[in-house]
Every structure is written in structure tokens, then in C-alpha cells.
């Protein structure tokens, strides 16, 4: 594939540009309309709320950057919850991607009955949250939980998984990795889309399974890995429901995620203006990191059919 040279003659481009522009917008039209109708309005509204004292039950009152100033100067929970979220995000990104990719490789082996096995592996996301939360409370129980029973059976000390501030956040990470079947499903689809002849060619070249994995699978899968990294990152920065159900942010705020903080400010404290300011700060952080991820992606994501670098 030849890349279009940077000094591609300009006039030729312009001649087609109107037709191309119309065609392009016909294709992306649905989402453009969708963003204008369903997303921009609410986003602008929340941006406005972030500049107000809006207690939901009373009309918003404009206060300029007061919420932001309070956030960065006097709110001790802002830094705490942001730090919990960042630490969780880092641990989850590394562990989650590795485990999901390995599981996907296992689930694309050509053996009989794979459809059934895959379904078993996807089970954690099929089961409704209420059941999952109950299960993990049980698994992690320090007194009668099966995990500690196993630890004690092999002579290790039991761990106070959810009850101690040292381990509670990591317990959340393990749980999230275990329920990370969405990532696995997408890796499975990505692996299935890799043409088999590439593997066959590498096999003929004598590459063993591990070599083929790094020489063929990873580069061919890089767009999928990139997708999972970006969405996993965005998702991990917005994680909070299991913490809300299982630990309520404790103990000692060790699982007080940023979005749990936003939820409490908005719906328990009824301070929607302040919650909106918090949301916009997170939005800007996520966007900045995503832009960096996209910039860096040019170096390692390989698109077979792309003429972009």
C-alpha cells in the first residue's frame, strides 16, 4: 500500500471535496445528528450547572468558578477520590488487558464445544449485578469465604479482602478483571478477524506458537488492543457501581472512587452544580489522556488497510 505523499497536489483534492464532504456526512450523519440532539444539549447544560450553585430542588444560581475553586482548594475528598481512581485505573489496565487477551487466545483455540465454553467464560457479565455483588461479598468474606479457606489450607494467612484499607482497592481490581468479559469478547472477535493464511505462513517459516503470537497476532490485533485500552481506560475512570454496592467507598475512603464521589454529591447531597464541576474536571483529564493515547498509537497500532500513519 502506498501512502499518499505529503505534497499531494492541492487543486485535485479540492475538485472532489464537495462531493466527498457530502458523501462523508451522509455516512456519519446519524451520529452527528445524534450528538447534536441527545448529547450536546445535556453537556452544555451540565457545563452551565458547573458554574452555578444548583441544589436540584432550587433553581441554579450563577456563581462563576466558585465550584472549581472550592474543588481545588478546600475539598479533601477530591484528591482522595481522584487518587483512588487513578490507582485503580492503572492496576486494572495492566492486569485486565493481559488476562483478557490470554483468555481470548484460549477461547479461539480450535476445539470442539468452544461455543459452550465461551458462554461459560462470558457468564460473569450475563449475571445481573445483584447476584454478582452477593457472590463477591461471599467469596471475599474474611471469616467464611472460600478464597480465605484456600489460603489457609495452603498455610497462608487469611486476607481481610474488603475490610482493610490496604487490600480493598485491589480486591475491586480482581473483581473487575473477572467481570471483564466484554474486553475478552472483543479480543475474541479481533482474533477471529486475523486471516489464517498469516498464521500458516509463519508456521511454514517455522515460528513456534509464542513467536507467532508476538510476530503475527499482536501486530494484527493492535487496532483491537488499542480499542480495548482506550475504552478500558475511559471505563475504569468512571467505575463505581460495585464499590457503591459492596463497600460504600470504605473502609477509610479506600474505595471512594471519583464517580462515587460525583454520585454522592449529585444525588445524596443534592449539589448538582458541584457534581457537574467535578464531572468536567474528570472529563478534561480523561480527554487529555485519550488524546495522548491516540498520538502514541500511531507508533504501535498497525492498520492493514490504512493509508494513515
Amino acid at each position: 500500500m502506498t501512502a499518499i505523499p505529503a505534497n499531494f497536489p492541492a487543486p485535485k483534492r479540492r475538485r472532489h471535496s464537495w462531493r466527498k464532504t457530502i458523501e462523508g456526512y451522509l455516512f456519519i450523519g446519524p451520529v452527528v445528528l445524534g450528538l447534536i440532539i441527545w448529547t450536546f444539549g445535556p453537556m452544555i447544560a451540565s457545563a452551565y450547572y458547573s458554574l452555578t450553585d444548583y441544589r436540584i430542588v432550587q433553581p441554579p444560581e450563577f456563581i462563576g468558578f466558585g465550584n472549581y475553586i472550592e474543588l481545588f482548594t478546600t475539598d479533601r475528598l477530591f484528591i482522595q477520590s481522584l487518587s483512588v481512581t487513578v490507582r485503580y485505573g492503572l492496576m486494572f489496565m495492566v492486569l485486565g488487558q493481559i488476562v483478557s487477551l490470554l483468555l481470548a487466545v484460549l477461547l479461539t483455540q480450535k476445539v470442539r464445544g468452544m461455543a459452550i465454553f465461551r458462554t461459560f467464560f462470558y457468564m460473569p457479565i450475563i449475571v445481573p449485578y445483584v447476584a454478582s455483588a452477593l457472590l463477591w461479598r461471599y467469596l471475599y468474606n474474611k471469616d467464611f469465604g472460600p478464597i480465605n479457606a484456600v489460603l489457609q489450607a495452603i498455610g497462608l494467612d487469611p486476607i481481610n479482602w474488603l475490610g482493610s484499607p490496604e487490600s480493598s482497592l485491589f480486591s475491586m481490581v480482581i473483581m473487575s478483571v473477572w467481570t471483564g468479559a466484554v474486553t475478552t469478547i472483543i479480543y475474541v472477535a479481533g482474533l477471529q478477524q486475523i486471516p489464517e493464511d498469516l498464521h500458516d505462513a509463519a508456521k511454514i517459516d517455522g515460528a513456534n506458537a509464542v513467536q507467532r503470537f508476538f510476530a503475527v497476532t499482536i501486530p494484527m490485533l493492535s487496532p483491537t488492543i488499542f480499542f480495548n485500552v482506550v475504552t478500558g481506560f475511559i471505563g475504569s475512570f468512571q467505575f463505581f457501581v460495585p464499590a457503591f454496592l459492596m463497600t460504600d467507598g470504605g473502609p477509610i475512603k479506600s474505595t471512594y472512587f471519583y464517580n462515587l464521589n460525583i454520585y454522592e454529591k449529585a444525588f445524596r447531597w443534592l449539589e448538582m452544580g458541584y457534581a457537574s464541576a467535578m464531572a468536567w474536571v474528570l472529563f478534561i483529564i480523561i480527554m487529555a489522556i485519550t488524546v495522548v493515547l491516540f498520538r502514541v498509537s500511531n507508533r504501535w497500532v498497525y492498520y492493514e488497510g490504512s493509508n494513515e500513519r
Binding site: R137, N141, D143, L162, S164, G250, P251
Partner: peptide, 9 residues
Amino acid sequence: AQPLDFDAG
């Protein structure tokens, strides 16, 4: 008192 980390299920 029931300790905060005692989860009776």
C-alpha cells in the same frame, strides 16, 4: 458491637 469488617452474609 459487630465490627465494621464482620460481614455476616
